[in-house]
Design a protein around this nucleic acid. Sequence first.
DNA 1: CGGGTTTGTGCAACTAGTTGCATAAGGAGG
DNA 2: CCTCCTTATGCAACTAGTTGCACAAACCCG
Lengths: 180, 180
Amino acid sequence: MSLPHAILTALLEKPSSGLDLTRRFDKSIGYFWSATHQQIYRELGKLEGEGLIRTLPAEQPARGQKKSYEVLPAGRAELARWTAAAQDPRPQRDVLLLRLRAAAVVGTAGLEADLRRHLELHRRQLAEYREIEQRDFPPDRDAPEDRIRHLVLRAGIDLETFWTQWLTHALAEFAELPDD
Amino acid sequence: MSLPHAILTALLEKPSSGLDLTRRFDKSIGYFWSATHQQIYRELGKLEGEGLIRTLPAEQPARGQKKSYEVLPAGRAELARWTAAAQDPRPQRDVLLLRLRAAAVVGTAGLEADLRRHLELHRRQLAEYREIEQRDFPPDRDAPEDRIRHLVLRAGIDLETFWTQWLTHALAEFAELPDD
DNA sequence: CGGGTTTGTGCAACTAGTTGCATAAGGAGG
DNA sequence: CCTCCTTATGCAACTAGTTGCACAAACCCG
């Protein structure tokens, strides 16, 4: 039940149309909560129906016309409520670790190439995060919202760092393993 | 599409009944692929229908009677295929980071307590993993399957380590933030 | 031996997310 | 002007996972 709240956050940061949101989910927010445009449009409809957001009173919104949304007070309140409410971490789900465990039983043949590919993907992501950090968080700027957003980005950077290290280590282990 | 493969892996490690599997998913495998007993029973039915597993020829399986499954050759082949096939990492989804980003907009009130709670949960999980490491992976044992399984456990340990550090850091930042 | 708890299996309904496709407006180019 | 591409919105069907509940056998206890 987090997509609506992700959308509320994005709209509070800046009122947007469905497509704008989609683009923004492909960047920043999507780094830890991805969504397709179909999901977003559906959710925008629901949120409007619940009175949490409304369309910006622009020209008549015909099909194929842009429709921008902004958050209503009720929406902001709901987001604040949700942010503060205790939530248990959702159960981990990691396919790669599962595959590795399977490989311990059926053999590692073929898996190594995909580990390499994943390593490359994580390296790229890490580089992208570092660029964002350079660009958006120069040293000595510290408005409270910036500090919090920087904290989120740090999590992303450290997670990607972890994965690149772990994958490197895993590949080194593979090299020592007897062929199977 | 990973649950069936998680089950195949578990059954290859040791033929089991639905309830046995449920228990094992609450431990080891569930650490990176959790599943409820309802999911497991449903999936066992499907896998049997597809000829990938079969019930161990025990006594007649009436309702309320244990029914144990073992993996058939076709099942092992399917697992090997799946393990070796290239798969893109599935998009990240982290509610806590999303909430933090929302907090940058609607304020951090109430969030701090839950961060503390999460920190405690991750500490506990980390301690549990370390115990398992002590117990199951003493130094100088290194059959190939053990090395791979140890690698998986290391990922768990390092991830929990990351989260405890990050949460500690986040709480320190919160302490410096002006109240809101 | 009768009633409550535990063990074990399972169905049904719901929620969230994914995939595939439809539709319309507007602009670009021959 | 007609076609093709891009922008923009959206529906429908499907898949995976969650929640709530049902039910039978076995075991345990007074």
